[in-house]
Design a protein around this nucleic acid. Structure first.
Lengths: 126, 126
DNA sequence: TATACCGCTTTCCTAAAGTATACTGGTATC
DNA sequence: GATACCAGTATACTTTAGGAAAGCGGTATA
């Protein structure tokens, strides 16, 4: 039996393998921001207004303070959320999406759009 | 010290907590499709034409056959890639992005757009 | 017969992500 | 004094993702 002719194309010739992966880095960055078990829910929670720590935790069943704390820190580091401490008693800490954080919305919208179609497709198939 | 007035908004009033998480499901679906250490690279590799198993593996340094096999199966299950076996010797198996799989491109484009801005922002800050 | 290629699978292992549970310091309330 | 709330932290554990190495069935080639 004879061999089949194979397309040897890998990346377009003007891109080295390294350049290919380099182009993927920003995509991975964006993905990392949104991945993790609780990130989306937390971001969603904050899109409806500023929230206190306990308030977020209560809204999201199963979310432990450790995870919430960790995820909020990541959002802060990435300048997507801001933290405000008020000297009340008991102390009040509020989290809020930054204007920059709100730029995620269209992106999440796109994910939602594609995901919705995909859901229909996969569910319909079964 | 007095308490601060807190915004009691959680989800918009017409959405229950459950509906909120339901709206996130499609987003998670889309995210799951793209997350994992090798998915993007494999998809990218396939956007440049159909490829054989070993060919993909050679293109992506560090990718083990186990992982490649697993990821390709997931892509197949989700109808994003198709698998064609040819009765040559040694056997030839080709993978290809389906037309449906190609609908990921604009989505990945959006992730790339946001990720690029984010990269600039975070690197500039340091 | 020995070796090599293809397209995988199997087994075992490590590292990272996430969970459960308890606890802290500070203030207020019973 | 005991208890409760807030905003977390600390420690130990489990679960999942991914990696390393070997092997398999089939065919070809030296």
């Amino acid at each position: 039996m004879e061999m089949i002719e194979h397309d040897k194309r890998k990346c377009p010739s003007h891109l080295s393998g390294d350049e290919c992966t380099a182009r993927l880095l920003p995509v991975k960055d964006a993905l990392d921001i949104l991945s993790g078990k609780w990130k989306l829910q937390i971001i969603l929670s904050l899109t409806f207004g500023k929230k206190r720590f306990k308030q977020i935790q209560r809204e999201i069943p199963g979310l432990t303070p450790k995870m919430l704390s960790k995820e909020l820190k990541e959002l802060e580091i990435n300048e997507l959320a801001s933290r405000h401490v008020y000297d009340t008693s008991p102390v009040t800490v509020e989290y809020e999406l930054t204007p920059y954080g709100k730029t995620l919305r269209p992106l999440i919208g796109e994910l939602h759009k594609w995901g919705t179609k995909h859901r229909k497709r996969i569910i319909a198939r079964k």
